[in-house]
């Protein structure tokens, strides 16, 4: 079979390298029965569009963030709850256990099968005015967030003014004060140049959203058992590579922006932030009562 795959990142990015490795491994492990042609840089459409294309069978493979899968598979939206994971290792413990299975099942019902989990680090707040140490520091701030009610709810509960905005406009908006701050992981903070215009990076790590290598369910189910195992194995090996490259990239980006004069601060006590999220969780669980077990499972995972 000839497969096509989607990835939003540019050449040289950890995910791009890992997806190329995945393509290479799939071909190798299936003895050339399956080949995968990767389209990097999001050239075949935006992330939500590509998710739809994989579900409809126009593409077989995609490297997706779970954030935009949330509106489609409710289970996947759980990872978009602020502060749901303690840290990145905690996230992987959940994903490699029963929690990951529940999320995978929800995605499978929508025609997407996750083959392996990739690391996308933790997202933290940055702004041009001051270090953030407590929710009061966010109060009154215009913060750019991605399009998701949970993210805008989070900023609102912290007393800020959530401002959804196209990603491409954020640099200029930060520079000129249309927004005061934004939030992202180290590599994005560095590669977008946002550190040049918003020099305070506060390690809130409020969102830890994993990524996945996903496959169209029909394409996967049409495989023989050996092929399934080979594809899965290829994805797992690429994930190992990705996680290693990601860690290196995070360190490089952090070093780079700190050398450029960015002020970073750890947040000694994240308790007040987490307490402020109680209404967000309550509203969410009221609207999605069936997801309570999953949320509790994640919270109970050591």
């Amino acid at each position: 079979a000839e497969w096509r795959g989607w990835n939003i990142h540019v050449e040289g990015y950890p995910n791009t390298v890992a997806m190329d490795k995945f393509a290479e491994l799939v071909e190798e492990k299936t003895g050339g029965e399956i080949s995968l042609q990767m389209f990097h840089g999001g050239t075949l459409g935006s992330q939500p569009d590509a998710i739809e294309q994989v579900r409809l069978g126009g593409l077989e493979i995609g490297n997706f963030n779970l954030g935009p899968i949330g509106p489609i598979a409710a289970e996947a939206n759980v990872v978009s709850l602020p502060f749901i994971f303690k840290d990145v290792p905690h996230m992987f413990r959940v994903l490699n256990g029963e929690g990951g299975e529940m999320i995978a099942k929800g995605m499978e019902a929508k025609g997407l099968i996750p083959l392996a989990w990739y690391d996308a680090g933790a997202r933290s707040f940055y702004n041009g005015a001051k270090p953030i140490n407590a929710p009061e520091d966010v109060a009154g701030m215009k913060v750019r967030v991605m399009n998701n009610d949970l993210y805008s709810g989070m900023i609102a509960e912290l007393g800020g003014n959530p401002s959804p905005m196209a990603f491409a406009e954020v640099y200029q908006a930060l520079k000129t004060g249309v927004v005061d701050g934004a939030e992202n992981n180290w590599p994005s903070y560095e590669s977008t140049g946002h550190f040049e215009v918003a020099g305070y990076y506060s390690l809130s790590q409020h969102l830890i959203i994993p990524e996945c290598v996903c496959i169209n369910a029909d394409a996967y189910n049409a495989l023989s058992d050996e092929q399934k195992a080979a594809v899965k194995e290829a994805a797992m090996e690429s994930a190992e590579l990705q996680q290693q490259l990601w860690a290196e990239r995070e360190a490089t980006s952090r070093k780079m922006v700190e050398e450029a004069g960015v002020v970073t601060n750890e947040i000694a006590d994240k308790g007040p932030f987490q307490e402020a999220m109680v209404p967000v969780y309550e509203a969410y669980l009221e609207a999605n009562a069936d997801l309570r077990p999953l949320v509790e499972l994640i919270q109970a995972t050591e």
Binding site: D49, E52, Q53, L56, G57, G58, A168, E169
Partner: peptide
């Protein structure tokens, strides 16, 4: 390719904030 994706591309062509 699924034709639905063709029309998805047509919609997405202008589903762009800028």
């Amino acid at each position: 390719l699924p034709l639905m994706i063709g029309f998805q591309r047509i919609i997405s062509g202008i589903n762009v904030f800028s």
